[in-house]
């Protein structure tokens, strides 16, 4: 179990270092969302700060859909997933490893993109909130990545999976989008009336528990070749 988990994790990181496919695609995408949004919405007329959390999460979630799908395209290309399934050890390790990788990539992307977003959208980011903000990013990402990994495994085995994946994932992103955006707005603290981020964070945690738990129960059904 531990060995299998570690080996797959290491392999995915190595793969990413070699190909750079996933994170380049994700970062570029998120960056483009910020850029296009900044241009499309006239920043002179509209104050961008109140919508900043929303734009941030839209960029993150769409970039995340891109990234989470990549992880399984690589496994499906030469049927490497079958190789992993046959290899000794619990299959849960495969799912957990893919989940971890998806989380790490997405979270890293979020941290990388954050400064650009702050600068481009003129967010007057107050200092000292970074730890809580990072925690929010992590919670939102966990909630997204659980179902995302499950569906990415399915989409890799379907026609036009890269089109299908966002369609399947959008409804599942809605709670994350709402809860994480509100929490972020509360933390950044320049919306009136002021929002208390904690209820939203708690709700986000509850969502994470449910949507990490369900894939763990159901992933076995996806694995069968």
């Amino acid at each position: 179990m531990g060995r299998k988990y570690g080996a797959i994790l290491l392999k995915d990181l190595q793969l990413e270092i070699r190909s750079k496919e996933t994170w380049v695609a994700m970062v570029a995408f998120a960056f483009m969302v910020a850029l296009v949004f900044g241009i499309a919405v006239n920043p002179v007329r509209v104050r961008l700060a109140p919508v900043f959390p929303g734009v941030l999460w839209v960029a993150y979630l769409f970039a995340g859909m891109l990234g989470v799908g990549r992880g399984f395209e690589q496994e499906a290309r030469d049927d490497a997933l079958t190789g992993l399934l046959v290899a000794p050890g619990d299959r849960l390790a495969i799912f957990l490893a893919k989940l971890t990788v998806a989380f790490v990539f997405m979270f890293t992307m979020e941290l990388l993109v954050l400064p650009f977003m702050v600068v481009l959208l003129g967010e007057p980011m107050p200092g000292g909130i970074l730890p809580l903000l990072a925690a929010t990013l992590a919670l939102g990402t966990v909630g997204f990545v659980g179902v995302g990994t499950l569906f990415a495994a399915m989409a890799a085995n379907t026609r036009a999976g890269s089109v299908l994946l966002p369609v399947l994932l959008v409804p599942f992103s809605v709670p994350v989008l709402i809860l994480a955006t509100e929490a972020t707005a509360g933390i950044l603290g320049h919306v009136a009336p002021a929002v208390d981020p904690w209820p939203w964070l708690h709700a986000l945690m509850a969502y994470d528990v449910v949507f990490l738990g369900l894939p763990l129960v159901l992933y076995e059904f996806i694995w069968e070749v």
Partner: peptide
Amino acid sequence: ARYASVLAIVAFFL
């Protein structure tokens, strides 16, 4: 059939 079942079950909770 398998994929659709999984999706429907997750959707129910969503």
